[in-house]
Computed example of a mutant assay.
Amino acid sequence: MLRAEHLSFRIGEKTLIDDVSLRLTPGEFTMVLGPNGAGKSTLLKLLTGTETPQHGQVWYGDRPLPSIPLATQARQKGVLSQLLSLPFDLSVADVVMMGRYPYFDLNPTAQDKHVADDCLASVGMLTFKTRAFASLSEGEKQKVHLARVLAQLHRPAGDESVKYLFLDEPISALDILYQHQILSLVQTLASQTMVVFVIVHDINLALQYARTVILMDQGRIHGMGSPDEVLTADAIEAVFQLRPYFLTHPGTGRRVMIC
Protein backbone atom coordinates (compact mmCIF):
# COMPACT_ATOMS: atom_id res chain seq x y z
CA MET A 1 0.00 0.00 0.00
CA LEU A 2 1.08 3.58 -0.64
CA ARG A 3 0.15 6.12 2.00
CA ALA A 4 0.57 9.89 2.00
CA GLU A 5 -0.38 12.09 4.92
CA HIS A 6 -0.76 15.87 4.96
CA LEU A 7 1.48 16.60 1.97
CA SER A 8 2.12 20.27 1.25
CA PHE A 9 4.43 21.73 -1.36
CA ARG A 10 5.00 25.26 -2.51
CA ILE A 11 7.33 27.21 -4.75
CA GLY A 12 7.91 30.70 -3.44
CA GLU A 13 4.57 32.06 -2.32
CA LYS A 14 2.54 29.69 -4.51
CA THR A 15 1.13 26.55 -2.89
CA LEU A 16 0.95 23.71 -5.42
CA ILE A 17 -0.14 20.92 -3.05
CA ASP A 18 -2.18 21.83 0.03
CA ASP A 19 -2.58 19.25 2.83
CA VAL A 20 -3.18 16.18 0.66
CA SER A 21 -3.66 12.76 2.26
CA LEU A 22 -4.47 9.50 0.44
CA ARG A 23 -4.07 5.74 0.40
CA LEU A 24 -3.51 3.67 -2.73
CA THR A 25 -4.09 -0.06 -2.52
CA PRO A 26 -2.59 -2.78 -4.75
CA GLY A 27 -5.14 -4.10 -7.21
CA GLU A 28 -6.88 -0.76 -7.71
CA PHE A 29 -6.58 1.26 -10.91
CA THR A 30 -6.45 4.87 -9.71
CA MET A 31 -6.89 7.66 -12.24
CA VAL A 32 -6.29 11.31 -11.40
CA LEU A 33 -8.18 14.15 -13.08
CA GLY A 34 -8.36 17.90 -12.75
CA PRO A 35 -7.89 21.10 -14.72
CA ASN A 36 -4.49 22.42 -15.77
CA GLY A 37 -2.60 23.62 -12.71
CA ALA A 38 -4.64 21.52 -10.27
CA GLY A 39 -1.48 19.88 -8.87
CA LYS A 40 -1.72 16.45 -10.51
CA SER A 41 1.86 16.19 -11.77
CA THR A 42 3.24 17.80 -8.61
CA LEU A 43 1.42 15.21 -6.50
CA LEU A 44 2.93 12.44 -8.65
CA LYS A 45 6.40 13.91 -8.08
CA LEU A 46 5.85 13.96 -4.32
CA LEU A 47 4.59 10.38 -4.28
CA THR A 48 7.61 9.18 -6.26
CA GLY A 49 10.25 11.19 -4.41
CA THR A 50 11.15 13.43 -7.34
CA GLU A 51 10.14 16.38 -5.16
CA THR A 52 10.25 16.60 -1.36
CA PRO A 53 7.22 17.99 0.48
CA GLN A 54 7.68 20.89 2.89
CA HIS A 55 5.20 19.09 5.16
CA GLY A 56 3.92 15.54 5.33
CA GLN A 57 5.31 12.12 4.50
CA VAL A 58 4.94 9.29 1.96
CA TRP A 59 5.13 5.60 2.93
CA TYR A 60 5.59 2.58 0.67
CA GLY A 61 4.20 -0.23 2.77
CA ASP A 62 5.40 0.48 6.30
CA ARG A 63 8.56 2.36 5.22
CA PRO A 64 8.91 6.12 4.72
CA LEU A 65 9.94 6.69 1.11
CA PRO A 66 13.17 8.60 1.95
CA SER A 67 14.39 5.64 4.03
CA ILE A 68 14.18 3.17 1.12
CA PRO A 69 17.54 2.74 -0.69
CA LEU A 70 17.49 4.05 -4.26
CA ALA A 71 18.48 0.63 -5.62
CA THR A 72 15.42 -0.87 -3.93
CA GLN A 73 13.19 1.94 -5.18
CA ALA A 74 14.38 1.31 -8.72
CA ARG A 75 13.00 -2.22 -8.53
CA GLN A 76 9.78 -1.19 -6.80
CA LYS A 77 8.51 1.83 -8.71
CA GLY A 78 8.41 2.93 -12.32
CA VAL A 79 7.57 6.44 -13.48
CA LEU A 80 6.51 7.61 -16.93
CA SER A 81 6.68 11.41 -17.16
CA GLN A 82 5.45 13.68 -19.93
CA LEU A 83 9.03 14.18 -21.17
CA LEU A 84 9.49 11.91 -24.19
CA SER A 85 12.68 13.16 -25.87
CA LEU A 86 16.16 11.87 -25.04
CA PRO A 87 19.42 13.86 -25.18
CA PHE A 88 21.29 11.04 -26.95
CA ASP A 89 20.70 8.70 -29.88
CA LEU A 90 19.47 5.22 -28.95
CA SER A 91 17.59 2.45 -30.63
CA VAL A 92 14.14 1.50 -29.40
CA ALA A 93 15.59 -1.68 -27.89
CA ASP A 94 18.21 0.37 -26.01
CA VAL A 95 15.56 2.69 -24.56
CA VAL A 96 13.51 -0.21 -23.24
CA MET A 97 16.64 -1.86 -21.84
CA MET A 98 17.10 1.22 -19.65
CA GLY A 99 14.24 -0.21 -17.60
CA ARG A 100 16.38 -3.26 -16.85
CA TYR A 101 19.37 -1.29 -15.51
CA PRO A 102 18.47 -2.03 -11.86
CA TYR A 103 18.83 -5.76 -12.57
CA PHE A 104 22.29 -6.12 -14.16
CA ASP A 105 25.78 -4.68 -13.69
CA LEU A 106 27.49 -4.27 -17.06
CA ASN A 107 25.71 -6.29 -19.72
CA PRO A 108 22.08 -7.42 -19.96
CA THR A 109 21.43 -11.12 -19.68
CA ALA A 110 19.34 -13.17 -22.07
CA GLN A 111 16.51 -12.88 -19.55
CA ASP A 112 16.76 -9.07 -19.58
CA LYS A 113 16.53 -9.08 -23.38
CA HIS A 114 13.56 -11.44 -23.26
CA VAL A 115 11.75 -9.18 -20.77
CA ALA A 116 12.43 -6.11 -22.93
CA ASP A 117 11.05 -7.85 -26.02
CA ASP A 118 7.96 -9.00 -24.14
CA CYS A 119 7.28 -5.46 -22.93
CA LEU A 120 7.72 -4.03 -26.42
CA ALA A 121 5.31 -6.65 -27.73
CA SER A 122 2.76 -5.77 -25.04
CA VAL A 123 2.54 -2.19 -26.38
CA GLY A 124 2.64 -3.23 -30.04
CA MET A 125 6.18 -1.96 -30.72
CA LEU A 126 8.30 -5.12 -31.04
CA THR A 127 8.77 -4.69 -34.80
CA PHE A 128 10.27 -1.24 -34.10
CA LYS A 129 13.06 -2.51 -31.80
CA THR A 130 15.90 -1.72 -34.24
CA ARG A 131 14.54 1.71 -35.18
CA ALA A 132 16.20 4.89 -33.94
CA PHE A 133 14.09 6.25 -31.10
CA ALA A 134 14.41 9.81 -32.43
CA SER A 135 12.75 8.76 -35.70
CA LEU A 136 9.49 7.77 -34.01
CA SER A 137 6.28 9.77 -33.79
CA GLU A 138 5.26 11.20 -30.42
CA GLY A 139 2.71 8.44 -29.93
CA GLU A 140 5.27 5.74 -30.76
CA LYS A 141 7.75 7.30 -28.33
CA GLN A 142 5.07 7.24 -25.64
CA LYS A 143 4.53 3.51 -26.15
CA VAL A 144 8.28 2.79 -26.08
CA HIS A 145 8.71 4.66 -22.81
CA LEU A 146 5.77 2.73 -21.36
CA ALA A 147 7.51 -0.50 -22.39
CA ARG A 148 10.65 0.76 -20.59
CA VAL A 149 8.69 1.31 -17.38
CA LEU A 150 7.01 -2.08 -17.67
CA ALA A 151 10.40 -3.73 -18.14
CA GLN A 152 11.55 -2.06 -14.93
CA LEU A 153 8.61 -3.49 -12.98
CA HIS A 154 8.63 -6.97 -14.53
CA ARG A 155 8.20 -9.73 -11.97
CA PRO A 156 9.96 -13.07 -12.28
CA ALA A 157 7.88 -16.16 -11.57
CA GLY A 158 6.99 -16.44 -7.90
CA ASP A 159 7.64 -12.77 -7.10
CA GLU A 160 4.58 -11.40 -5.29
CA SER A 161 6.11 -8.13 -4.08
CA VAL A 162 4.10 -4.94 -4.47
CA LYS A 163 5.10 -2.75 -7.42
CA TYR A 164 4.24 0.92 -7.93
CA LEU A 165 3.42 2.31 -11.39
CA PHE A 166 3.06 6.06 -11.99
CA LEU A 167 2.01 7.37 -15.40
CA ASP A 168 1.65 11.07 -16.22
CA GLU A 169 -0.68 11.42 -19.22
CA PRO A 170 0.55 8.18 -20.87
CA ILE A 171 -1.96 8.30 -23.74
CA SER A 172 -1.93 12.01 -24.63
CA ALA A 173 -0.21 11.40 -27.99
CA LEU A 174 -2.08 8.22 -28.94
CA ASP A 175 -5.03 7.77 -31.24
CA ILE A 176 -8.27 6.38 -29.84
CA LEU A 177 -7.53 2.71 -30.61
CA TYR A 178 -4.19 2.75 -28.81
CA GLN A 179 -5.63 4.75 -25.91
CA HIS A 180 -7.99 1.88 -25.17
CA GLN A 181 -5.34 -0.79 -25.77
CA ILE A 182 -2.89 0.85 -23.38
CA LEU A 183 -5.49 1.50 -20.68
CA SER A 184 -6.71 -2.10 -20.94
CA LEU A 185 -3.11 -3.25 -20.47
CA VAL A 186 -2.64 -0.99 -17.43
CA GLN A 187 -5.98 -2.14 -16.02
CA THR A 188 -4.71 -5.72 -16.18
CA LEU A 189 -1.45 -4.74 -14.48
CA ALA A 190 -3.37 -3.03 -11.69
CA SER A 191 -5.00 -6.34 -10.82
CA GLN A 192 -1.58 -7.98 -10.31
CA THR A 193 -0.51 -6.73 -6.87
CA MET A 194 0.41 -3.35 -8.29
CA VAL A 195 -0.37 0.19 -7.13
CA VAL A 196 -1.29 2.16 -10.27
CA PHE A 197 -1.53 5.98 -10.34
CA VAL A 198 -2.39 7.41 -13.76
CA ILE A 199 -3.00 11.06 -14.67
CA VAL A 200 -5.49 11.58 -17.52
CA HIS A 201 -7.66 14.36 -18.88
CA ASP A 202 -10.49 12.34 -20.42
CA ILE A 203 -13.35 11.91 -17.95
CA ASN A 204 -15.05 9.27 -20.09
CA LEU A 205 -11.92 7.10 -20.03
CA ALA A 206 -11.86 7.38 -16.25
CA LEU A 207 -15.52 6.37 -16.10
CA GLN A 208 -14.72 3.31 -18.21
CA TYR A 209 -11.43 2.08 -16.74
CA ALA A 210 -10.78 3.46 -13.26
CA ARG A 211 -11.70 1.68 -10.07
CA THR A 212 -10.73 4.73 -8.01
CA VAL A 213 -10.78 8.37 -9.14
CA ILE A 214 -8.98 11.31 -7.55
CA LEU A 215 -10.45 14.65 -8.62
CA MET A 216 -8.06 17.54 -7.90
CA ASP A 217 -8.51 21.29 -7.88
CA GLN A 218 -6.17 24.07 -6.71
CA GLY A 219 -3.72 21.68 -5.07
CA ARG A 220 -6.31 19.81 -3.03
CA ILE A 221 -8.32 16.63 -3.45
CA HIS A 222 -11.88 17.61 -4.30
CA GLY A 223 -13.05 14.01 -4.17
CA MET A 224 -11.66 10.46 -4.04
CA GLY A 225 -13.63 7.24 -4.51
CA SER A 226 -15.38 5.27 -7.22
CA PRO A 227 -15.98 7.07 -10.54
CA ASP A 228 -19.73 7.18 -9.95
CA GLU A 229 -19.24 8.70 -6.48
CA VAL A 230 -16.68 11.32 -7.49
CA LEU A 231 -17.49 12.27 -11.09
CA THR A 232 -20.90 13.80 -10.51
CA ALA A 233 -22.31 16.68 -12.51
CA ASP A 234 -21.98 19.02 -9.53
CA ALA A 235 -18.34 18.06 -8.86
CA ILE A 236 -17.32 18.40 -12.50
CA GLU A 237 -19.01 21.79 -12.74
CA ALA A 238 -17.30 22.98 -9.54
CA VAL A 239 -13.84 21.90 -10.70
CA PHE A 240 -13.96 22.47 -14.47
CA GLN A 241 -16.50 25.34 -14.58
CA LEU A 242 -18.57 23.40 -17.10
CA ARG A 243 -21.91 21.68 -16.54
CA PRO A 244 -21.88 18.14 -17.99
CA TYR A 245 -24.68 15.77 -18.85
CA PHE A 246 -24.61 12.00 -18.72
CA LEU A 247 -26.06 9.31 -20.96
CA THR A 248 -26.09 5.55 -20.47
CA HIS A 249 -24.04 3.57 -22.97
CA PRO A 250 -26.46 1.14 -24.65
CA GLY A 251 -23.86 -1.63 -24.85
CA THR A 252 -22.15 -1.47 -21.47
CA GLY A 253 -24.62 0.34 -19.24
CA ARG A 254 -21.85 2.74 -18.13
CA ARG A 255 -22.33 6.46 -17.80
CA VAL A 256 -20.97 8.57 -20.64
CA MET A 257 -20.38 12.29 -20.23
CA ILE A 258 -21.33 14.88 -22.83
CA CYS A 259 -21.15 18.66 -22.64
Rank of each mutant, 00 (worst) to 15 (best):
residue 1 M to L: 10
residue 2 L to Q: 04
residue 5 E to P: 00
residue 6 H to S: 13
residue 11 I to A: 11
residue 21 S to V: 12
residue 22 L to G: 05
residue 23 R to T: 12
residue 23 R to G: 00
residue 26 P to K: 03
residue 26 P to V: 06
residue 27 G to N: 06
residue 27 G to Q: 03
residue 28 E to M: 05
residue 32 V to A: 01
residue 34 G to E: 12
residue 37 G to T: 11
residue 39 G to I: 04
residue 42 T to M: 04
residue 47 L to N: 08
residue 48 T to I: 00
residue 50 T to S: 07
residue 50 T to G: 07
residue 52 T to L: 07
residue 53 P to R: 05
residue 54 Q to N: 02
residue 55 H to R: 14
residue 56 G to Y: 08
residue 62 D to R: 13
residue 64 P to W: 00
residue 65 L to G: 10
residue 65 L to F: 09
residue 69 P to L: 10
residue 74 A to I: 03
residue 75 R to L: 00
residue 76 Q to F: 05
residue 78 G to I: 08
residue 79 V to H: 01
residue 82 Q to G: 08
residue 84 L to K: 08
residue 86 L to Q: 07
residue 87 P to L: 11
residue 90 L to R: 02
residue 93 A to L: 14
residue 100 R to W: 10
residue 103 Y to R: 05
residue 104 F to G: 06
residue 104 F to H: 11
residue 106 L to W: 15
residue 107 N to H: 15
residue 109 T to W: 13
residue 113 K to E: 13
residue 115 V to P: 05
residue 117 D to S: 14
residue 126 L to N: 00
residue 129 K to T: 11
residue 132 A to S: 15
residue 135 S to T: 15
residue 138 E to M: 14
residue 138 E to K: 00
residue 138 E to G: 15
residue 140 E to L: 10
residue 145 H to A: 10
residue 146 L to G: 04
residue 149 V to F: 04
residue 152 Q to Y: 09
residue 153 L to N: 04
residue 153 L to I: 06
residue 156 P to S: 09
residue 159 D to K: 02
residue 160 E to T: 10
residue 162 V to F: 02
residue 164 Y to P: 03
residue 164 Y to M: 10
residue 167 L to Y: 03
residue 171 I to L: 07
residue 172 S to Y: 07
residue 174 L to C: 08
residue 174 L to I: 07
residue 175 D to I: 10
residue 176 I to A: 15
residue 177 L to R: 14
residue 177 L to E: 07
residue 183 L to R: 03
residue 184 S to L: 04
residue 186 V to S: 05
residue 189 L to V: 03
residue 189 L to M: 05
residue 190 A to H: 02
residue 190 A to T: 01
residue 191 S to Y: 02
residue 193 T to V: 04
residue 194 M to Q: 01
residue 199 I to N: 14
residue 200 V to N: 12
residue 203 I to K: 08
residue 204 N to Q: 04
residue 206 A to D: 12
residue 210 A to N: 05
residue 216 M to E: 07
residue 218 Q to M: 12
residue 219 G to D: 11
residue 219 G to E: 06
residue 222 H to S: 11
residue 223 G to T: 09
residue 224 M to I: 15
residue 225 G to P: 10
residue 227 P to T: 07
residue 228 D to W: 03
residue 228 D to M: 12
residue 233 A to N: 04
residue 238 A to S: 13
residue 245 Y to N: 13
residue 246 F to L: 04
residue 249 H to L: 06
residue 250 P to L: 08
residue 254 R to Q: 14
residue 254 R to S: 09
residue 259 C to L: 14
